[in-house]
Computed example of a mutant assay.
Amino acid sequence: MTLLPLLAAAAPKAVSGHLNPVKLFLDADIVVQIVMAGLILASVWVWMIVLSFSLRSGGIRTRCDTYERAFWKAKDIDAFQAEWEARDTPSARVAAAGLAEWRASARRDKDGTRQRLAQAMDGAIAQEADRLAERLNFLATVGAVAPFVGLFGTVWGIMNSFFQIGQQQNSSLAVVAPGISEALFATAIGLFAAIPAVIAYNRFSHRVDQLEARLQRFADRFHASLSRDLEAG
């Protein structure tokens, strides 16, 4: 006996008059079952992304706070960067990009040096934002597509119900209602997957924008500091 039939059999008799999601799934047409299973897997993956992104973004924010406070107090910038090299800190990688361009520049063309420094750090900022947002496209896809996938399962299930009416020559509600309930359950699962995905995508996109703006402010301040050194040299 597989897990789903066991769950259906274990459902309390007291709730037999209410909807049993496991029974709705088991009684549905095979096509509707495939749709439901795909939507459930998508929903599980959405919640995994939500949890992992929340933990990762929180850790990044904390490390950036610590790094940036210590960066402006560092006496030996090379030793300081070496200490932070192995940590997942976007601010450190933006600073490393600026320092690498600073060391590679001849500095005879001051305007050109400033431009290359800005480009190097802007590129690093864009790369950090892309790295953090790499899984958010899945949330957007689920949020946009899941309701329509659920609707497809519903339409297929209703078509199957009407086909059964024709086969049984009986159009009573008792014949039609169970099949329609199973079909509508597919739309419910689609919405269950889509709504958290849309909310999470909007929230996390805002966090990525905040990080990008934060890194840009740090890069601008560092660029100003290097520009002063360039003028002094």
Results as ranks from 00 to 15, higher is better:
L6P: 09
L7K: 15
A8T: 07
A10M: 05
P12A: 12
K13R: 12
A14N: 08
V15F: 09
P21Q: 02
L24A: 03
F25C: 00
L26F: 11
A28H: 02
V32W: 05
Q33K: 15
I34F: 09
V35Y: 04
A37R: 04
A37D: 01
L39T: 04
I40V: 02
I40A: 02
I40W: 03
A42S: 12
S43C: 14
V44Y: 07
W45M: 10
W47C: 02
I49L: 04
R56W: 10
S57T: 04
S57F: 12
G58C: 15
G59N: 07
R61T: 03
R61M: 12
T62Y: 10
T62A: 09
C64S: 08
C64F: 04
A70Q: 13
A70G: 06
A74M: 06
A74K: 05
K75A: 13
D76F: 03
I77E: 12
A79F: 04
F80I: 05
D88E: 12
V94A: 12
W102A: 01
R103M: 07
R103H: 05
A104P: 07
A104Q: 05
S105E: 00
S105R: 04
Q115A: 15
R116Y: 15
L117P: 09
Q119M: 15
A120G: 14
G123K: 11
A124I: 13
Q127E: 06
Q127R: 13
A129V: 11
D130P: 14
A133I: 14
L136Q: 09
F138I: 12
A140E: 15
A140Y: 08
T141I: 14
G143H: 10
A144K: 03
A146H: 03
A146R: 00
P147G: 02
V149L: 01
W156M: 02
F162H: 03
Q164E: 11
N170Y: 04
L173F: 06
L173Q: 02
L173V: 01
A174T: 09
V175F: 15
P178D: 02
I180V: 05
A186V: 04
T187C: 00
T187N: 01
I189T: 00
L191Q: 01
A194M: 03
A194R: 00
I195P: 00
V198Y: 00
R203G: 06
S205F: 01
H206K: 13
R207S: 01
R207W: 04
R207E: 06
E212K: 05
R214T: 13
Q216R: 08
R217M: 09
R217H: 07
F218M: 12
A219M: 08
H223E: 07
S225A: 11
L226R: 00
R228T: 10
G233T: 10
